[in-house]
Structure formats: structure tokens, C-alpha cells
Design a protein around this nucleic acid. Structure first.
Lengths: 260, 260
DNA sequence: AGCGTATAGTTGCTTTTTACAACTATAAGG
DNA sequence: CCTTATAGTTGTAAAAAGCAACTATACGCT
């Protein structure tokens, strides 16, 4: 079982260098430092491999939580990043090399005690990608795909990242119900049985083949690649490609349908 | 038509006081100041009055966008606010005096150019409340309920607040479809025709009475107040109260139902 | 060739849910 | 005891989903 070498050290403040001669300087420096919370961007990057949902984690090289697994991310750099979205996209490319996956803002977590160094806020994004499309870059730190069981991994995570992961899994599951984001967990061309398998893995329950196909086809979000099929055992399956007409739903029922 | 007296002044930086003798001091002070974006929390507070959706806006007393209408909000105070959620709740009480409305995080908007003073991030919350429960406090600034047409108001808003408002309306509409949040736009006790009217006002379309009632009742989120009825014209209506069993859906259909 | 098996995809019937319209119920006021 | 106004119910048709059996197309084997 993997754990944290360095669990939280509350109270310890991470000012590494300080010109200690001028009290006034320090007072104002600290004021500037603490008038704003530290601001970071973290990523929950999902993929499906080996019949299981996986999330990308990195091993922390620095205190706090040194040696502990954590979500990839880090400080926003106001000089490089034109926006929070741009910062998230930059970090995603850094970690995975993937430029155009599904990337959506999840939520911002900010509080006085989520980091032992003091007040921090992190805006978390969640990303979906096909496992085939990724080459882990691990530029700075050891990075690895980790299987998700239920809504958590098998070991402790740094900071409040376990809660963040649980929220992200929750969002992923609920968005599966009314959007087509699952297609982003597959390569550009895929078959309906493959798509159904993604649903079954993430929702953790078997789905009915004919109902699934009816809904997906009727939503008219998939383009049939005429002539192209994927071979394997048994009858070859028809290949499809996702086409995005803005958001649409698989599911014809919503309260608006009560209109008369 | 109401406008902004003071549209953006790009390039102007709001350093009001500066100890100008020590270049080194300024350099490090600025570094501390700009290594983090400014962090604010804004609120989109909705209510329904006079058969229309309204949002609470305040008139800005300071530059930039002085005199322009804006969403209420302001800087997070790391000393007072234990968390971003707590900051939002504090600001909500400041503006409206309401302690327990529906309050949910919407999204974080952050970029280099959304504020002429430089890099800022704002975490936006959206709140729902019954119009009866509010007494506008307008502690600092002129505050007013403003009617929302479609997904905007009739005049220009400060910063990127028009976009934020549009996103909030969008979220409100889509959550009406699969949650019960509309009950928070009514007093604690309400009738089904009143609830249906809220839906019709926000979704901007008439709904079928019997279908609406069937769905709402079957979701089993409402408690009938036996013996209590609200009078008016015609037959008096039964009063109900919302009971929250965690999130549940009006709507029986979702892809999970394909299970077999 | 012909059969078994494995997966893809379709079809038809049943059940559930929704839409729609007509109906009943209960109040107020002349 | 009408009319009007709003609340609430019921019955039926249409739509959607559940479910199971069916056909289709590949492979590999004898």
C-alpha cells in the first residue's frame, strides 16, 4: 500500500528565503503575500484502460506531502497564462502531450486549511482522453495511471485530492447520463460496442444493447463511417465518429417536454 | 438606457500608495503582488418577482467601471474567510440578510484582461431565494433587483459580468430539468400551481398541469401540509413543503435505466 | 463444405412513462 | 343557483424503454 512519506505539517510556513534585516520589509512583504490566497490549477485526467477507469497521478517531489501521490497541477503563472483555462490546457500538454482532449472546469476548492502552508485556492479541471493517445511525459515528477475503484484510489492522496477525485468521478458519471462526453475516452473512430463498454465500466453496471443503440443513434451525434469496420472476434463492428453539434442529449425526456 | 460612466481603463494599475525610496523593496513587493492573481468572489442572486426572473445588481462606487451595474461581490479576505464557500455565504448575508438560501458554486472566471487593473480570478456562486425573504441591505452600494430578459439584462454590465450572468441563467435552466432547486425561489410553504409558474417563468414556456404534478409528486420530494391551504380566486390550493433527501430527480429516465 | 462459436446488429412484443384533453371539485360573487 | 375562476383528477393515445429472441458476419476447426 502506497502512502505519504510526509503527511501534513500544520503551522509550518513555506517561506524559504527571507531578507531578515528589515522588519518593515517583511511586514509589508507578508502583507502582500497574504492579502491574496495562493492560486493553483489541478487536473483530474481520466482514461479507460484494461476495462477500468484510471486517473493520472504524480508523486510529489516537494513538501508538503512529499512522496505522496497527488493530482497533477501547480501554480498559475500570471505572466505565461492568459487565463485559467489556458493554464489548465498548458498543464495538460505538459503532463500528457495531448492538445485537444475534452477539458472542462470542475470546481474551485479554496480554504485556510487545505494546505498546511496556509490559505490556498485551486481551480480543478477534468479531462478525458483515449488511453492510446497519451504518452506520459512526466517532465518534472513520476507520473502514473492509477485505477479508480468506486470513486477513489487504493491509497491516500495529498491535500484534499481524494475529495476532489470523488467529485470528479461523480461529475463524470452524471454527465454520462445526459451528454456524449464518453466519446472522448475513445479514439476518434470507434464502434458502438466499444462506446457501450465505456458506459458500463464507468457506471459499473451492464446496459441493454438494443436500448443503448437506439438512444445513441437517435441522438444523431454519431457519423457512420461507411465502408470502415473494426475487426476482431466475431462479426466486424461498424465504425463511427463523433460530430459535435453543440450540446444535445441522448435522452428525449426532460421537463420541457411537458409543454403544450 | 443605463450605461457605464467609466468603461475600462487598460494599462492603469491600481497601486495607490508606494514607498518609493527603495527600488529593491518595490521590486519584491511587486513580485509578491503579481505572483498571484487577485482573487474575488461574486454572486448571481436570483429571485422571481412580478412574473419575471430577477437578478440582484449593485452600482459600482469605485473605478474601474464606476457607476456601472455589476454583480455583487468583492475580494476574498483570507483573515476572515475560512473558505471560498464561507466567503460567498458572508457576502450573501451582507447583501440580502438571508442566511439559508440555496447557494451553489457556478464557475471560476480568471484571465489577464477581464479587469483593466490586471490579472484577476473570480469564483462565482449562484443563489436562489424567495423575493419575500429579502430585505436589501445595500450596505456599501446602491443595490437593486433587475429583470432578466432571455439570459441578459437591458443594459451593460461591468467586467465580464454579462457573460457570467448568461452562464448562470443557463445553469439555472438546465438544473430545473433534473433537480428541485426551483423550490428555493418560493417561500417555505407553497402550492403546486405556484411551483409550476416558477418553472414556466424561467423556462419561458407553458407546461402541462397533469404531467407536471405527476412528476413532482412521484419524485416524493414534497411533503403535503395536511389541512393547510392557500386561498385566492377559485378553489384553494394545497400547501406543500420541500423535504430534501439528498439529490433526487423528478425524471425517471436516465441511461442507467438500460441496465438488465 | 459445414459446423461451432463469438460478436454485431435487428426485430417484435410488453411494459412503463408521458402527452393531451376532458372531466370533477371548491371557492367567490352576484 | 348561476357564472367565473382556479385546483386537481382521470382516461386514453402516443412515445419510449425493457426484454428476449432473432438474424448477420466473421473465424477456426474438422
Amino acid at each position: 500500500m502506497i502512502g505519504c512519506d510526509d503527511p501534513a505539517e500544520p503551522g509550518k510556513v513555506g517561506l524559504t528565503t527571507a531578507a531578515s534585516d528589515e522588519a518593515e520589509f517583511l511586514r509589508r512583504y507578508d502583507a502582500a503575500r497574504y492579502e491574496k490566497p495562493s492560486f493553483t490549477v489541478d487536473l483530474v485526467i481520466f482514461t479507460v484502460r484494461d476495462e477500468h477507469l484510471h486517473v493520472l497521478l504524480v508523486k510529489r517531489a516537494e513538501h508538503p506531502f512529499k512522496g505522496c501521490w497527488a493530482l497533477p497541477g501547480g501554480f498559475l503563472d500570471p505572466r505565461r497564462d492568459a487565463s485559467v483555462d489556458a493554464c489548465a490546457a498548458r498543464k495538460l500538454i505538459q503532463e500528457t502531450g495531448v492538445r485537444t482532449p475534452y477539458l472542462e472546469q470542475l470546481k474551485t476548492y479554496g480554504s485556510r486549511d487545505r494546505d498546511p502552508r496556509g490559505w490556498t485556492a485551486t481551480t480543478v479541471y477534468f479531462a478525458l482522453m483515449a488511453s492510446e493517445s497519451v504518452r506520459l511525459l512526466g517532465n518534472q515528477a513520476e507520473a502514473s495511471w492509477v485505477g479508480v475503484r468506486g470513486d477513489q484510489v487504493d491509497f491516500e492522496l495529498a491535500f484534499d485530492h481524494a475529495q476532489i477525485l470523488a467529485d470528479a468521478v461523480d461529475r463524470l458519471r452524471s454527465k454520462l447520463e445526459y451528454t456524449h462526453i464518453a466519446v472522448h475516452l475513445l479514439p476518434e473512430e470507434f464502434t458502438l460496442p466499444e462506446l457501450q463498454r465505456i458506459y458500463e465500466i464507468i457506471l459499473q453496471q451492464p446496459l441493454d444493447k438494443s436500448s443503448f443503440r437506439r438512444r445513441v443513434i437517435q441522438a444523431d451525434m454519431l457519423e457512420e463511417l461507411t465502408g470502415k469496420q473494426r475487426d476482431g472476434f466475431g462479426r466486424p463492428a461498424q465504425l463511427y465518429r463523433f460530430r459535435d453539434y453543440g450540446r444535445r442529449t441522448f435522452f428525449p425526456r426532460s421537463i420541457s417536454r411537458h409543454a403544450r
